[in-house]
Design a protein around this nucleic acid. Structure first.
Lengths: 239, 239
DNA sequence: TGATAAATTATTGTTAACAATTTTAATATC
DNA sequence: GATATTAAAATTGTTAACAATAATTTATCA
């Protein structure tokens, strides 16, 4: 369990800051789904009282980033396949709406801003700085929402962004293939610059579907071979 | 302050139940925006300890139903005009997506279910039972989301539904003109039955725009007439 | 009489202690 | 050695008390 620790030794963090840091740890793939979040441990890590941690966990559970079970504590959420599919489908709806809204109000300054972001993102990829690239990819989507100027869509997109890693890590694993494709970000900005909302939306849908289409029920092994199952463990490993 | 009290005298309510009741009071227009929510008072009303109320208020604040200010307590939220506009615009996005999703999977049983709901709603309007009609109108929207089967869209719609009264009461007042028009609900179900998603979406947009279009900045009186302002109060009243 | 300061009350914020439940480790039994 | 039982430790849930802050009331002064 490795939530980032940023704390001053004599005074603990605020509730909001603890919340933010745990959210960021999820986003950075540092907190895998299923991770047990123990109150006393977190309180010690962040240099705060347990009461504050309990408040933070309540909020995280309310946002569905955390599963809380009575008397058993909190774990990082593990969304089902259906939830994962629903989340991505909803993400397509929200991101499309953001692009349509943004397309109607985009100006040269905004395009410049987005292009700068893209350049940083490409640079991070080129240097092989995986963490940085991930953060900038995420920020690209956030910036679209922010520039679109609808605070409710912004809010929901940020909610979705926070939950997306849980789906990916639970069902697909931490693999570069399951991340944003940078060239599609560029194509979205191009379309926005051309005032072509339809095209932007189309690229965005493709962008999300490249991950979404991989989220499915894993077929059960229909009829497990009993002989294989009953063989001693050491023999099984070499089979 | 009149949150509904449903409690057993010897044992208080669960956290979830207190949350639900406060949410319902907002939805029923019983808790106007700006209402002060005092912890000790709520604890007494619901027969619970103050700690539980604090948890509930945290959750309500996280959902933006409540504004919490440090050392000053919690009040029922008063969304700005912009937030109100953003919320309705987002509502149109979400409800449209729900209808599109539902249209692709609707069956005769679902139509029957919706028609029953419509009948109850019409009945309540006919009898002049305003509270009941409001509840059934809200439920209509919820049922569309539930039948559509995307849990994330469902979640967001419910969030929006909880926040909508705050916008309406803050900016438009508690007036039947600011409620759902029942015949539009019927038209939506007709369109769904005909497999006409486009039509359903169109009616829904009109349905929401009839309220949304009234949410705007009230024009400031540009240049107050000094003579009028300085006139004694009694003379002013008759002018 | 109105404005300001001081006192009192009400409310929110925090805490450590204890209760309740779960998990882990140790011990006993077969 | 495997399983069951018991004990101990860890963790979560709750609470009342107290601290800190804000709101209201009362007293004082010009």
């Amino acid at each position: 369990m490795s939530a980032q620790i940023e704390t001053t030794s004599n005074s603990g963090l605020s509730e909001d800051e603890v919340l933010r840091q745990i959210e960021q740890a999820v986003l950075d793939h540092r907190l895998p789904p299923g991770t047990k979040l123990k109150e006393v441990q977190l309180a010690n890590l962040f240099g705060v009282k347990r009461g504050l941690i309990r408040k933070v966990l309540t909020r995280l559970a309310h946002s569905r980033l955390v599963d809380q079970t009575p008397n058993r504590g909190a774990t990082v959420a593990k969304p089902s396949v259906k939830e994962g599919q629903d989340l991505f489908a909803t993400r397509r709806v929200i991101e499309s709406a953001i692009l349509e809204t943004l397309s109607a109000r985009v100006d040269a300054g905004m395009i410049r801003h987005l292009r700068k972001l893209l350049a940083s993102e490409q640079n991070a990829y080129r240097r092989g700085n995986s963490e940085k690239a991930l953060a900038l990819s995420v920020d690209f989507h956030r910036q679209l929402a922010s520039l679109a100027g609808n605070s409710v869509l912004d809010e929901y997109l940020n909610d979705i962004i926070r939950r997306t890693p849980l789906v990916i890590l639970t069902h697909l694993g931490d693999d570069d293939q399951n991340r944003c494709r940078n060239q599609e970000h560029a194509a979205i900005v191009d379309a926005l610059e051309q005032g072509n909302a339809k095209k932007a939306v189309k690229v965005m849908n493709r962008h999300l579907l490249h991950i979404e289409s991989k989220i499915r029920h894993k077929p059960e092994t229909a009829h497990a071979d009993l002989a294989t199952l009953l063989r001693p463990q050491s023999e099984r490993a070499s089979a």
